[in-house]
C-alpha cells in the first residue's frame, strides 16, 4: 500500500497521471459552468428581498468556499511534504497558492460588489470580511516566501510551516458570523437537508460550486506539471520529455 503510494507520488508518475486526467476535468468543468451559469442567471428566480442582485451569490459563494478549501489542500500537501518528505507534497502546495489567492480575491471583490447595493457599503471591518482578507495575505505571504527563497527545499519547508500555522484562520472565517456580531449574515447552507435557500436557487449554486471545484482540480494538475518540470529539470526523464515528439 505504502509502496504503491510512493510510486504514484513520484514526479514522473504523477506527471503522466496529471497529463491524462486534466483534459477530462477541463471538459467536465466547462459543462458544469454552462449549466451553472444558465441556472444562476436564467433559471433561478429573483430573491424576495434582494431581487436580481442576489445572483452575485453564484460567483461569490463558490469563490469563498474554494478559497478555504484550496487553503486546506495547500496546508495538507505542505504537511505531507514536511512530515513524510514526499516531494509531491511540496510541489502540490506550491501549485495551490496562486489559485487560492485568486479565489480569495474573487470572493472579496464580488462580495464588495454585492455589499455596495445591498448593505450600502463596499467594505466594513467586521470579523468575516477581515478574516477573509487575512486569508488573502496568507496566500500572498506564502507566494512571496516561495519566490524569496532560492533553495526550493528550504522554500517548501518555510512555506509549509506558514501554511500550517495559518490553518487556525480557517475556522475563524467559518464561525466568525456566529462568534461575533457581523454585518455579514450567517451561513445559508450548514446542513444539506434543510438549507435556508429555495431549491430552485440552491441547485444552480451547487452546480457552480462543482464547476469551480473541477476547474480548480484541472488547473492544479497543470500547475503541478509545471512545478514538476522545474523541480526535476535536470533529470533524464524531463530531458526526454522536453525533446520528445509531443513538444514540437
Amino acid at each position: 500500500m505504502f509502496e504503491r503510494f510512493h510510486k504514484f507520488a513520484s514526479p514522473p508518475h504523477f506527471h503522466a497521471f496529471a497529463r491524462m486526467l486534466s483534459p477530462w476535468l477541463f471538459g467536465v468543468s466547462a459543462l458544469l459552468f454552462a449549466a451553472g451559469l444558465f441556472g444562476g442567471l436564467v433559471y433561478a428566480p429573483a430573491d424576495y428581498q434582494q431581487g436580481e442582485s442576489f445572483r452575485i451569490i453564484y460567483i461569490h459563494v463558490p469563490s469563498a468556499w474554494l478559497s478555504m478549501f484550496v487553503y486546506m489542500v495547500m496546508a495538507s500537501a505542505g504537511a505531507v511534504g514536511l512530515i513524510w518528505k514526499v516531494k509531491m507534497g511540496d510541489i502540490v502546495a506550491r501549485a495551490c497558492a496562486p489559485l487560492g489567492a485568486s479565489f480569495t480575491f474573487l470572493a472579496l471583490a464580488t462580495g464588495s460588489l454585492w455589499g455596495k447595493p445591498m448593505w450600502g457599503t463596499w467594505w466594513v471591518w467586521d470579523a468575516r470580511l477581515t478574516s477573509e482578507l487575512i486569508l488573502l495575505f496568507l496566500y500572498l505571504g506564502y507566494m512571496a516566501l516561495q519566490s524569496a527563497i532560492e533553495d526550493r527545499r528550504a522554500a517548501a519547508r518555510a512555506g509549509a510551516v506558514l501554511a500550517i500555522v495559518g490553518v487556525v484562520n480557517i475556522p475563524i472565517i467559518h464561525y466568525s458570523v456566529e462568534w461575533w456580531s457581523t454585518l455579514h449574515q450567517g451561513a445559508t447552507i450548514t446542513k444539506l437537508d434543510r438549507p435556508s435557500m429555495d431549491i430552485s436557487m440552491l441547485i444552480p449554486l451547487l452546480g457552480m460550486t462543482l464547476a469551480f471545484k473541477t476547474l480548480f482540480a484541472a488547473v492544479l494538475l497543470v500547475r503541478t506539471r509545471c512545478e514538476i518540470l522545474e523541480f526535476e529539470q535536470h533529470t533524464n526523464w524531463v530531458r526526454e520529455l522536453a525533446t520528445g515528439p509531443e513538444v514540437r
Binding site: P45, A46, D47, Y48, Q49, Q50, F54, I57, M118, W119, G120, T121, V124, L183, Q185, G186, A187, T188, S196, M197, D198, S200, M201
Partner: peptide, 22 residues
C-alpha cells in the same frame, strides 16, 4: 452618521416568501 442594511441568510423567490407569510 451611517446606516447599513444587514440581510439574513434566507434566499427564496417572492411567491415562496408570500406563502410562508413574509
Amino acid at each position: 452618521r451611517e446606516v447599513l442594511a444587514k440581510h439574513d441568510e434566507n434566499y427564496m423567490p417572492p411567491e415562496v416568501a408570500e406563502a410562508l407569510g413574509h
